[in-house]
Amino acid sequence: MRVVFEKPEAMTDSPMHYCPGCTHGVIHRLVAEAIDSLGIREQTIGVASVGCSVFAYDYFNVDMQQAAHGRAPAVATGIKRVLPDKMVFTYQGDGDLASIGMGEIVHAAARGENITVIFVNNAIYGMTSGQMAPTTLVGQKTATSPRGRSAAETGYPIRMCELLATLDGPSYLARVSSHDTKHIIQAGRAIKKAFEMQQQNKGFAMVEVLSTCSVNWGMTPAKSMEWLAENMIPYYPLGVYKDITAEEGK
């Protein structure tokens, strides 16, 4: 017998603090696997954001910086500009990236900043116990939309991939999901591709991973996976929104 699946080297031995069934853990592993498969662990500097993944610096076995809420793309820019040969990634939630950090992500994308962004969209603020996020679906109940998100009062959820795809800076934008094994494997490929884009100096690459927050959604982990597939994917269609290498190939 041989080992066909084990914890990647780019992950530390620390057990993760996430709630049972939280897909942050899956996405961490996919990022670590991408780093391992490209052999870039010693060249990589990660930027943890503020949100449930704030402790990511304990879980990735690479150099890490912890950024202020929303500012990970700016911090990553600072690192990448002074260490252009290193691989720099951010790991951000939807509140972090699409609300308080909207300015930083849009401008990092517009500059074509040569970094990799892992964007975890769980349609809610996890860490602060379940408030409405910029990605909360219309009708979805949260701590601050207790009667369900009303479009009349709070507008509509933001589709980040589509929004950033209007810019010339990004090299690769993809939306993937973490709700079942098939999609997780696809997500892993997209994440690896987003690191390859940086390696080839193609510029800004982002993978949006649809993910769950079973505790704040008030469902079991298994039920959350179904809810994601049934409710999030129709509003947030999966796919590649930009890939300059595909365009180059044409």
Partner: peptide, 23 residues
């Protein structure tokens, strides 16, 4: 490296990143 940031908030966080990277 000179970079005009999108805001003072971004600029100081770029400083954080670059300083943390040893520059």
């Amino acid at each position: 490296v000179f970079l005009q940031a999108e805001s003072e908030v971004a600029a100081i966080n770029m400083v954080y990143g670059a300083a943390g990277a040893g520059a």
